[in-house]
């Protein structure tokens, strides 16, 4: 070190400079020892700017599918890794996390979710696309802690009323819901009963019945944005036909959707995402496709063209409706 009064040491750097540097590090680097260098660096590691979003979407469980509940078995080592990362990041974040993102193949346990909920009281947005291992009490306890919750990405579940009821009771600002899986009449009626003030709903890349769509449009009077891009739209028919795929949005649905600010649809045969939804029979298998695609939502990217390997998705305004049309390259 140069012996000069003017020379400053690395640990004497302003916190805001250290924060600027640490913003360029990912979650693994932030939690793997940077905070242990010295107390000044630890202080910088606790800055709320670094912890507005805790994105664990690069972390996934090492698991195998099993025939019995919870239908997955998660390897103990990957479970411990998640626990440690949660422990350190939730300690450093000092309750400033507002967005929490889990990978769709990261199977969080009851204990991990409860631990997280207690330490993220300011949470506004939660992306939790798989909760096979979370029991009803664990989920309810977590939601009770998230009074500020506004947005949730969730899987399709067998018994939706309890969770929607918890949200309606405890999350007064709740307005956005994204369901990663088929939405049936039971789910739609639960939505109507417990979340009538929902403003944004995304059902993209799933199987959707026409009567379910009509129920949603009729009962969610505060709805502003509805995304049914790349959905397989079905119509129930009397026996023996039972059901058929609808190729385009009919006049009834258009009229009902005309009050929406955004109505995002795509049912093109040439669209790669639509083809994928059909191939996967309305329950899209995200692990087969481009990494990060599962997180995408047209409603969030309005006005931009979403590029992926095989197609460009473009949004077109048609009257008061917005349609998502896909063009093959």
């Amino acid at each position: 070190m140069e012996d000069n009064d003017y020379i400053r040491r690395w640990e004497d750097l302003d916190i805001d400079i250290l924060v600027k540097i640490f913003q360029l590090l990912d979650i693994f680097e932030l939690t793997s020892g940077i905070s242990r260098v010295c107390s000044a660096w630890r202080l910088a590691c606790c800055d709320p700017l670094l912890w507005k979003t805790l994105d664990l979407s690069m972390l996934r469980s090492n698991f195998i599918k099993i025939p019995l509940e919870p239908f997955v078995y998660v390897d103990g080592r990957s479970d411990r890794t998640l626990t440690r990362i949660l422990k350190i990041s939730l300690s450093l974040s000092q309750q400033s996390i507002m967005t929490l993102i889990f990978h769709f193949n990261l199977y969080v346990s009851d204990e991990q979710l409860t631990y997280t909920a207690e330490r993220c009281p300011q949470l506004r947005r939660l992306v939790l696309p798989a909760w096979n291992r979370i029991k009803k009490p664990g989920m309810c306890k977590a939601i009770r802690g998230w009074k500020e919750l506004e947005s949730l990405t969730m899987p399709c579940i067998a018994n939706p009323p309890y969770i929607l009821e918890e949200i309606s009771t405890h999350c007064k600002n709740f307005s956005e819901l994204k369901i990663m899986g088929p939405c049936d009449i039971f789910f739609a009626s639960s939505l109507a009963a417990f979340l009538p003030k929902l403003r944004v709903l995304s059902l993209r890349c799933s199987m959707l019945y026409k009567d379910v769509l009509i129920l949603i449009l009729d009962s969610l009077q505060h709805l502003e944005v509805l995304n049914i891009s790349h959905c397989v739209l079905m119509e129930a028919l009397p026996a023996p036909q039972q059901k058929r795929i609808i190729k385009e949005i009919d006049v009834t649905i258009r009229q009902k959707a005309s009050r929406l600010r955004e109505f995002l649809t795509c049912m093109e045969d040439s669209c790669v995402m639509c083809q994928r939804t059909r191939t996967d029979e309305g329950l899209i298998r995200w692990y087969k496709y481009e990494e990060g695609l599962w997180k995408t939502d047209e409603g969030e990217c309005w006005g931009y063209s979403l590029q992926n390997e095989s197609n460009a998705i473009v949004f077109v305004r048609c009257g008061r409706l917005k349609f998502c049309t896909a063009m093959s390259k």
Binding site: R9, W10, E11, G33, I34, R36, V37, C38, S39
Partner: peptide, 14 residues
Amino acid sequence: VEFVRDYFGVTNDY
């Protein structure tokens, strides 16, 4: 951590 301390000449005050 040790490398970072050594590289940047940071004193460990823990």
